[in-house]
Design a protein around this nucleic acid. Structure first.
Lengths: 189, 189, 189, 189
DNA sequence: AATGAATGAGCCTTCATTCAT
DNA sequence: TATGAATGAAGGCTCATTCAT
C-alpha cells in the first residue's frame, strides 16, 4: 500500500542519490539531506535516523533488477553475445552517468560501516552469479569458449567495479574503454 | 640534507600511515594524528597545516620505487616472466598486508580533493608505464605474446587496484587470487 | 458525570503514573506518554497540554483518601494504636511498592514548578492534620502520651517523606525500617 | 601541584554550584555552565565531558570535612552537648543558605544516575558514622542517655535530609525548626 | 475527536584552528 | 620550537507544539 509516509521515504531517498553521488557517503550530513529535500530536521528524522539508514535503503532498492532482465532474455533465446553486449553497454553508460560517484560512495559505505559489509558482499556475489548465468547459457549455445566461468565472472566484476569507481576521479577516454571491453570479450568469445 | 625538521616530518608521516590505513583518509583528524604521534596540536601544525598535506606528502614518498627496481632487473637480464611474477607477488602481498586500507584511502583522497587528482592520475600512468616497460622487454625476448601493451597494462592496473581496494572490505581467498593472477598471465604469456 | 472525555483523561493519568514513577517528573516527555498510552500526539494534547497538567491532576486525584479513612475509623472507635499502626504499615508498604519513585517525582515537581508549590504545601499540611487528628483522639482515650501534637506530626511527616523519597534510590532493610517505626512510636505511646 | 588546568577545573565547579542549587541537577545544561563561566563550549568540554562529571566531582570535594572537625573536638574534650549543638546549628544554617537547592539536586543526581548511587549511599553512611561517634562519646561521658546509637543516628540523618531537601521548596519557620531540633535532642539527652 | 506529518528551537559533542606563553 | 588552553563553527539528535486531514 502506498501511504504518504512511504512516498516521503521515497522522496528522501531519491533526493539523496544525487548528494551521495556528488559528495560520497561519509561527507553527506543529515543537514545536507534536509536542505536538499527542503524539509526540516525533524521531518527527515521521522523517517530515517541516520545517513547510514538512508544509504542502506537506497542500495536495497536497486537490487534484483539485472537478474530479472537477464533471465527474461535467456528465455526469449536472445543470442548470448547480444546479452553480454547489452551488459557491457549498460556498464559503460553507468560510467558516463551523472551519478557515477555513487560507485565510490558504495565503497566508502562498505569501509565505514563494517556491519554492512555482508550485504555488500552479497551484492558482489549476485553480480557474479548473473554473469555466470549468461556464460553458462553462451557456452551451451556454443557461442562462448569454454573457460572457468566463475573466475572470469569475478574478474569482470572486479574490473568493471574499478572502472566505475575510478570514473568519478579520473577521466577515461571512449577509446580506452572500448579497448578494455574488447579485451574482456576475448576471454569469452 | 637531513635536518631535525625533516626528521619530525618523517616521524609524523610514518605514524600517520597506520591511521589512514585503519580509518581511511577523511575520517582521520589532526587530533588523531597528534595523539598517535604523542605531540601537541601546535607541534604538528608547525609542520603540516592539514591532513591533506600529510597524506599528499606520504603519497609522494612511496613513488619511483618500483620503476627503479624494474629497470635494474631488466639491466640484469632477469627473465621477463620472473619480473612479472615478482610484480604479481608483491601486489598479492599488499592485499594481505596490514596497511591494505591505504588503497581505499587513496581513492578517498582523490575523491575528496579534486585538486590532487592530477597527481593521482600520474600515479596510475606511472604504474601503467612500468608494466609496459616489462611487457616490451618480454616481447623483445619472445617470452611474451604480442598484444596491445598499453591496453593490457591498463587492464591489469585497474584490476589490481580493484582487488587491493576491495581487500579491506571483502575477504578474498588465496585460491581465488591465484586463479585471477593466472587469468592475467594468460593475457601475456 | 462520567463522560467519554473524562474516561480518556483517567486513562492517560493512570498510564502516566508508572512513567513518572520510573523516570521522575522532568524526564517524562509528552512523547513518552503518547507511546505509553498508545495514543497519537494530537490525541493526548486534546486532553492535556503538558506533563505539568497531567502530573498536577494525578496529584489531586489521590488526596482526601486518607482523611476519610481515618475519620471513619475514629467514628468506629477503633483503638488509636491500631489506627496509627495501620498508618505506619501503609507507609512501609509505599516504600516497597513499585511506584515508590513517585515520591521523588513529587519533589521534583515542586522544585521544577514553583507555582505549584502552594498545593504541595497544602498536601503536607493535610497530612500533618490527619496525624494530629489521630493524636488528639489517642490522647483523649489516654492511649497516647501528652506531647506537642503539631511538632510530632510534622516530625513524622518529614521523616516518612525522607524514607519514601530515598527508597527509590537507596536500599533499606526491613530491620532498619522496623527500628525506625519503633522510635517514632516511642514519641507517641 | 597547582596547574592552570586545575584552577580552571575548580573555577568551573565553583561556578556550577550556584547553577545546580538554583535549577537542580538535570535541568542544568552544559550550555548553562559555559555561559555561567563565560567560557566557550570547547573550553568547558576540555575539562568535563558532562554535567554528571562536574556534579560528581563537586560532591567529592566537600566530603571528610565534618568527620575531621568532630574528631578534633572530641580530642579537645569539648562537651558532647556542645558538639551536637554545633552539628544542629550547622544543619540549620544549611537550610537558610542560598545553596540549599543543592540538597535537592543531590537527590536528583542519585535518581538520574543509578551508577552513582553507591557513592551516595556511602555519603549517608559516613554521616551516620559521624553522629554515632558523637553519641558514643556523649554516652561515655554520661551526658547522653543510653539508646540505640545506630537507629537514632539514621533517624536524624534522614530527618535532617528531609528538612534540607524540602527547604528549597517549602518555607519553614524558625519556630518550627527549633521545635524539631528539641524533639531530636530529647531522644539523646 | 483523532491522527500523525512537519516544523524549528535547543542542547549535545567534536574538531580545526589560533594564540599566549 | 613546542605546548596546550581556548574559541566557535558545524553537525547530530530530540521534543514540544502545531495543523491539515
Amino acid at each position: 500500500m502506498i501511504t504518504k509516509g512511504n512516498k516521503t521515504r521515497q522522496f528522501i531517498i531519491e533526493n539523496s542519490i544525487n548528494l551521495f553521488s556528488e559528495k560520497g557517503y561519509t561527507a553527506v550530513t543529515m543537514k545536507d539531506i534536509c536542505e536538499k529535500c527542503q524539509m526540516s530536521r525533524g521531518g527527515v528524522y521521522r523517517y530515517f535516523s541516520s545517513t547510514k539508514e538512508i544509504f542502506s535503503e537506497m542500495l536495497d532498492a536497486d537490487l534484483e533488477l539485472n537478474r530479472l532482465v537477464v533471465e527474461e532474455r535467456i528465455q526469449e533465446k536472445v543470442p548470448a553475445e547480444r546479452i553480454i553486449d547489452a551488459y557491457f553497454r549498460q556498464e559503460i553508460e553507468s560510467i558516463y552517468s551523472n551519478n557515477n560517484g555513487l560507485y565510490f560512495a558504495i565503497h566508502e559505505f562498505a569501509f565505514a560501516e563494517p556491519d554492512q559489509r555482508e550485504s555488500l558482499n552479497q551484492r558482489v556475489n549476485d553480480s557474479v552469479n548473473i554473469l555466470e548465468t549468461i556464460f553458462a547459457y553462451g557456452q551451451e549455445t556454443h557461442e562462448f569458449k569454454m573457460f572457468d566461468r566463475e573466475a572470469v565472472a569475478i574478474h569482470i566484476i572486479y574490473f568493471m567495479d574499478s572502472l566505475k569507481t575510478s570514473s568519478s576521479i579520473l577521466t577515461m577516454s571512449k577509446d580506452m574503454l572500448t579497448k578494455q571491453i574488447n579485451l574482456l570479450k576475448e576471454l569469452i568469445i
